[in-house]
Structures are given as C-alpha cells and as structure tokens.
C-alpha cells in the first residue's frame, strides 16, 4: 500500500486529467467520518476552497473578487499521486477548467490562435 503525506504530497499539488491537461490545484481536502476514523472524501478546487486558508480580512476580499465557487473531485476519481495528482476522467466531465475553456473559446475567434 502506498503511504501518502496528505499535507506535502496532495495539498497544493497540481491536478492533471486523464489526458495530462492541467486542471487546477488541490486547494483543500474534504474528509468523511468512518468507523475507522476520517478518510479523504474529495479534493476541493477553486476560490471557495482556498479562501478558507486565508486570514479573515483577506478571505472577505478574495470572496468579493473571485466568488466562492469550488468543485469537489471525489477521491475515487484519483488514479495516482506522484508529483501531480492524476485523475481518471477528463477535466470537463468533472467540472474542472471551465473558465479556461471559456476563455479559450473566446480566443479561438482570433487569427493564429
């Protein structure tokens, strides 16, 4: 069984989807209670996830600027963890990288894009 240091090897690591496309960072972790103790339920991605790690005043400011959206990625979707957290599915299917695709679609209208 692979031993994982959640703080050093999962939190704040880059997430890549099944095609190797970068689709965010592990901004926070969600735990679930089980009779054996807490287990990781999901990776949390997005402003709503990292804001909780900021000092209170900055948290308010960050929420105002970036909103508080966050996407939970179930731990069962994680294929492997090395220097990146690799997922089993495409980013789109998990609701990740939405803004990137939106901006990309907009830039696509320009020549040589």
């Amino acid at each position: 069984m692979k031993r994982l240091d959640l703080m050093r090897e999962v939190l704040d690591q880059e997430i890549v989807d099944v095609d190797g496309v970068a689709c965010g960072m592990v901004d926070d972790l969600e735990f679930r209670d089980t009779p054996q103790g807490p287990v990781v339920a999901a990776l949390l991605v997005g402003p709503g996830a990292w804001q909780t790690r900021l000092p209170a005043l900055l948290r308010v400011l960050a929420r105002w600027v970036f909103g508080d959206g966050r996407v939970p990625v179930p731990w069962s979707e994680v294929k492997d963890v090395d220097e990146r957290v690799q997922l089993k599915s495409k980013a789109e299917a998990l609701g990740l990288g939405v803004l990137d695709r939106r901006v990309g679609a907009w830039l696509r209208r320009l020549p040589k894009s």
């Binding site: 880059e14 970068a22 689709c23 965010g24 960072m25 991605v45 320009l110 894009s113």
Partner: peptide, 13 residues
C-alpha cells in the same frame, strides 16, 4: 500557482 494549462508552445485556445 493556480494549476492552469500554460506555455507559449500551447495554442492560446
């Protein structure tokens, strides 16, 4: 820092 796809070698789209 945010884990976006990056690189000049990638197409802007």
């Amino acid at each position: 820092f945010a884990g976006w796809p990056w690189g000049k070698e990638k197409r802007p789209r």
